[in-house]
Design a protein around this nucleic acid. Structure first.
Length: 178
RNA sequence: AAGGCAGGUUGUCCUGUCGCUUUCCGCGCAAGCGGAAGGAGGAAAGUCCGGGCAACGCAGAGCAGCAUACUUCCUAACGGGAAGCCGGUUUGCCGCAAGGCAGGCCGCGAGACAGUGCCACAGAAAACAACCGCCGAUGUGCCGUUCGCGGUGCAGGCAAGGGUGAAAACGUGAGGUAAGAGCUCACGACUGCUGCAGGUGACUGCCGCAGGGGGUAAACCUUAUGCGUUGAAAGGCCAAAUAUACCGGGGCUUGAGGGCGGCUCGCCCGAUCCCGGAGGGUAGGCCGUUAGAGCUGUUGCGCAAGUAACAGUCCAGACAAAUGACAGGAGUCCCGGUUUUCCGGGAAACAGAACCCGGCUUACAGACCUGCCUUUUCU
RNA sequence: GGCCCCGUAGUUCAAUGGAUAGAACGGAAGUUUCCUAAACUUUAAAUAUAGGUUCGAUUCCUAUCGGGGCUA
């Protein structure tokens, strides 16, 4: 399906911090691409310390209102926006330095998101076949707004390049492991 | 008819496919799926003002500071708006002229007899004026004398003319005089006061009296009025997570520090405390948060801004942040061919909600309406 | 979202409301040199924009534009 729901978007501060501090990056005009490969095992300690005490809560206060206000109560659970129901979490960033007007920034982000939505399926199957999860960010470094058809072409090229890069990394990683 | 200026209204629409998001309903352990209904603006912008709302303790006083400034009204309030008054400027008319009247435009438009400061250059002088100049009637020296006086100088008088400047002490005309001057008169402009008349008022008109040494308060200032500070990252609730490790300084009723924030006084709290360094943890969720000085219409009142009554109506609610993409068609405008139709191509602005309202300011393609001005044609 | 500050030559800074806006570095032209450097001479170049107050604004006031900073 050509959907682009919230679970497929990167909208959690900690994950974003992780991506930009430890992620790999490359240029593919007009984007700067940053990605970080992840699997579910190393996601949990990011949010919860191993030795942390689990607050069990007061059973008297259990009520529907409380459960509504705090979905994670009474046990630890990842925030919904941080769960990998889909293999990729993606975001777009347009610097204010290059585009002063909010309208232009909005338009670029919408074009990029639309192009990504239509062309992501190959990338998804590629990742699913290798059991990988990925954080992904597109930073728009161009100086002018491209029309939709060009943006779509650029996104196709960029996703292809990203696939090649991930494949190459995995290959060398296995080699090093041997 | 064309062009310009000012003000106001509007600011593309329809269909299909794929998608985002909110609410409701149904299914599902959950992820999610299906259906229905909604989903950017006149400026959402700048953050220039005013409010609502919230916290700061449950009394307060003074100073400082800030803002505003013709009048009346509108308003929840305003530095906003409406109507007027006054002033400036411009056009036209009247007048010999000074000036007056009418229309347009503009105005942060209290006070310069409370005080202080400043006014470069030029000019004699920029605030108790005299360089050139005019006079020398009056007093006096000298010379001449026909003994009437004349000439010249001084004491002195004057502020008309020249010149400087942004600005030099009412304007025009006449009288007057030694020369002159509001010194006097006529007309005109201005300031203050008394009275009468009109107006809610700013103010205006008339009569009378008095007056004739600037400007600047968007310089300090004075007067009057108003203002507590902070700002949804306010604030409340729930959950999660920890470390008062350690180092330095101050203080414990003879009081550190804090509480309404620039200062002082007063009042209150106050010891497992306060300040600095270094370090550790969390940064999910719900409420606030979209029914409001709301919007639309009719009628009454008011010159108007507005307001009252009645009727109808619910109109985004995201949260590292949704409202999009593509295709086709219709209408508008422009260009080319054709010039009735029609065909091809292109254009469609400024711009994106972030607690919510009322204004102001700024940006804006095109279309429509109203008023004024200019040009051309016709009657 | 809220608050604050600043705009002067190409750059870094000056300038009580008062004449033609000053200095350093840099630029250009010239002298010198076989050529360059250095030195010397000359020269161009600016008050963010628009209104207003004033006789007169870089300075005072208002609005706009641009830049920077602070705020969990």
């Amino acid at each position: 399906m050509q959907t682009f729901r919230k679970s497929e978007r990167l909208c959690t501060f900690r994950l974003k911090e992780l991506l930009f501090s430890q992620g790999q990056g490359f240029f593919s005009y007009p984007f700067r691409v940053v990605y970080y490969l992840i699997n579910e095992d190393n996601l949990e300690p990011l949010f919860f310390k191993d030795d942390s005490v689990v607050y069990e809560g007061n059973p008297d206060q259990q009520s529907d209102l409380l459960a509504h206000q705090n979905p994670s109560w009474p046990h630890r659970r990842l925030p919904p926006t941080a769960s990998f129901y889909q293999p990729v979490k993606m975001m777009v960033s347009v610097p204010r330095r290059n585009f002063k007007k909010a309208t232009d920034r909005n338009r670029i982000k919408r074009l990029v998101k639309e192009s990504y939505r239509k062309n992501k399926s190959d990338f998804y199957t590629f990742l699913k076949s290798r059991d990988l999860r990925c954080l992904l960010a597109f930073v728009y470094t161009g100086r002018e707004i491209l029309p939709y058809s060009e943006t779509e072409n650029k996104i196709k090229l960029t996703l292809q390049k990203l696939r090649d890069e991930i494949a190459a990394r995995q290959h060398t990683g296995i080699k090093a492991g041997e």
